[in-house]
Design a binder for these strands. Sequence first.
DNA 1: CAACTATATCGATGAATGTCAATCTGCATG
DNA 2: CATGCAGATTGACATTCATCGATATAGTTG
Lengths: 116, 116
Amino acid sequence: MNSLQTVGTALDAACCAPSGQLALSAEDALRKAAVFKALADPNRLRLLSIVKGADAGEACVCDLTEPLDLGQPTVSHHLKILVDAGLLHREKRGTWAYYSLVPGAIEQTAGLLASL
Amino acid sequence: MNSLQTVGTALDAACCAPSGQLALSAEDALRKAAVFKALADPNRLRLLSIVKGADAGEACVCDLTEPLDLGQPTVSHHLKILVDAGLLHREKRGTWAYYSLVPGAIEQTAGLLASL
DNA sequence: CAACTATATCGATGAATGTCAATCTGCATG
DNA sequence: CATGCAGATTGACATTCATCGATATAGTTG
């Protein structure tokens, strides 16, 4: 229960900077860095890519374990990081957990860069 | 001499994906993750922010050490990472080293997200 | 309820990373 | 040439992180 929906938080904090001279505050930098940290792993990028390209826009863990050539606990761990960063949404239906992109999260993250 | 101008390389590799079903290859994911790794530190984000907002679009190390409350070697280290990632440009003039944003690098990085 | 399956969590381990103190390299100036 | 200064590099250390095997949880099915 650390930082849910970090992307949104980071964006909110960024919206008011005069964009001229004021540098990023230490807190804002920490929030934004948290989002990029979630993206700073090749396997997590591939997870996002697979989920994005999946049929109904969602994929379950079993679909994600094989193409990445990682153990199931490791994939579960990466997915948790992406959820905590506010990039993925998790929905449990029956025995399966389905992951999908949080709408707008990618765009918001791109916005973090513009508002540096 | 590891990976200069990673941003450009990562973008080049991404430009041709049909954007439909094909997931990120392991190599592309590695290249893209390298860029986000460079952004995944609050102090590096603040460095980018300060350089971006600096007077002539450039700043020397002496201007960057104090606001971050870090030692000079540490700042130098972070700057090197940002240069290697293709985000910052380094120009040595006399005793001083001036850092500036690589034009378009931020936008290209945002593009990496769109082309996931 | 027992067995099975899908997923999450825990604990350990090796690798990568951020930071600092100390040192090195050039440039400039007396 | 000697001194001083800006910045880079090196080596060490503590922390974080990615990964795995083992185990726990929860839903499904016999």
